[in-house]
Simulated scan of single mutants.
Amino acid sequence: MNRLIIISIFIIGLISENAYAQQRPQYTQYATNQFLINPAIAGSQNLDEIKIGGRVQWIGFQDAPQTVFATYHAPFKKMPFQTTMRQRGHHGFGAILIKDITGPVSQTSAHINYAYQHPFTSNLSGAVGASIGVLQHSIDMGKLNFQNANDVIIDRLIPNRFAPDGSIGIWLYSDKFYFGASITQIISNTTMFMPTGEREIETFDLKAHYFANLGYKLDIGPETSDWFIIPSVLFKSIRPASGHFDLNIRAQKSDNFWFGASFRQDDSFSGLIGFSAMQDFAFTYSYDFIISDIGPYSGGSHELTMTFKFKKKQKKIICPDSFWL
């Protein structure tokens, strides 16, 4: 597939005013890695957690988007476990590193995160969080072929551009449900440059991304069964677009095995499967079947995440459940 076609598709998504225009990477496995879209997750469990993953999008397109990411978060200043309304909260710290590549264009982001977790009861907690970081927008000039190497248009391209970035979020969670809301890329209106062909460039402004998601845990089978299902929904919007939603349902056996399906509005159907080994390592894989206009030309999208958990031996913190991680 011609490089110009895939870059043009990417640009249309970036500068569209009439459709949902995702400027940041999208994730099929958001329901098992909420920290990627909400900084309030940091430190919500009594363990250090590292997730490493990658996504290859639109198989069959030359120079299609590819994303790799790594996240880390942990609690600190933990308080003794109590079951009274006077239970003290604790702090969380985290970091996120993401690199997204589309042909000659790449975007690297690095953030540090802080959250305050506060238990309201033994089964209900809330959190607020924020992150701050930097975006690096790069163009590999060696991958661009200009008809006239002396064209003045080349001088307008900025091979590397940096911009400040940040996000904020809230998180409410219990042993039965979760609700989250967040805004990423809150430092918007920074102008970026992008090549769209052999002799043209386009500009686009960074826009804030709005997320809201809700999930509920439903026990299934007899009381002795450790199987449950988690239906969830994610709403996302970039103004002035009206927004899009993802629907997700996952069946899970304790913390050992899970499988599910997802629907992304106007884009794809997905299947996912995962397992955990010895409570310290988890593996999740998903495949997207594309239903948008590029579906007939694409072999779908693949996403893989590996999770490493390091349990704390110090004083315990309250975490009503971790089915939403």
Rank of each mutant, 00 (worst) to 15 (best):
G260D: 06
F281C: 03
S242W: 10
L157R: 03
A212E: 07
R88D: 12
F146C: 12
G54H: 01
I168A: 15
C319Q: 07
D205V: 06
A163E: 05
F228H: 03
S109H: 12
I317N: 08
I158T: 15
S286W: 01
Q265E: 15
F281N: 02
N123K: 04
S242G: 14
I139N: 10
L14Y: 05
R24Q: 13
F177G: 00
H118S: 13
K309N: 03
D151K: 06
K315C: 08
I290W: 11
D165G: 05
T67Y: 00
I220K: 02
Y285K: 06
A149F: 12
I6L: 09
V134W: 12
I201V: 11
K312P: 11
L4G: 15
N145D: 13
V56Y: 02
E223L: 12
A31E: 04
D321G: 01
T83D: 13
L36K: 04
Q185T: 13
Q252Y: 09
S167C: 08
L97H: 11
F263I: 03
G92M: 02
T83S: 11
I229H: 01
N18P: 15
S106E: 05
V56Q: 02
R250D: 09
F275M: 05
N145T: 11
M1H: 11
P65Q: 01
T108C: 01
I37Y: 05
A130S: 15
V68N: 02
N248T: 05
R24H: 13
S301M: 01
I317H: 06
I112V: 09
D246N: 02
L14A: 07
S232W: 03
G215F: 01
P65S: 02
I12P: 14
Q66K: 05
A70E: 04
S298W: 08
L157V: 07
N148C: 04
G243M: 10
Q22G: 04
I154K: 08
K236R: 10
T32W: 00
R3L: 14
A149Y: 14
I249Q: 01
F263Q: 04
E49H: 07
T102V: 13
I6V: 15
M79S: 08
Q185A: 10
S292I: 08
I41C: 06
N123P: 15
S122V: 12
Y287E: 08
P80Y: 09
F61R: 00
T28S: 06
K77V: 06
M306H: 03
Y210A: 00
D255V: 03
D100L: 02
Q29W: 05
I59A: 10
N123F: 15
Y114H: 02
G126K: 00
E198H: 12
F120T: 01
T121C: 07
L47R: 10
Y116Q: 04
I5F: 14
L124K: 03
L135A: 10
W171T: 03
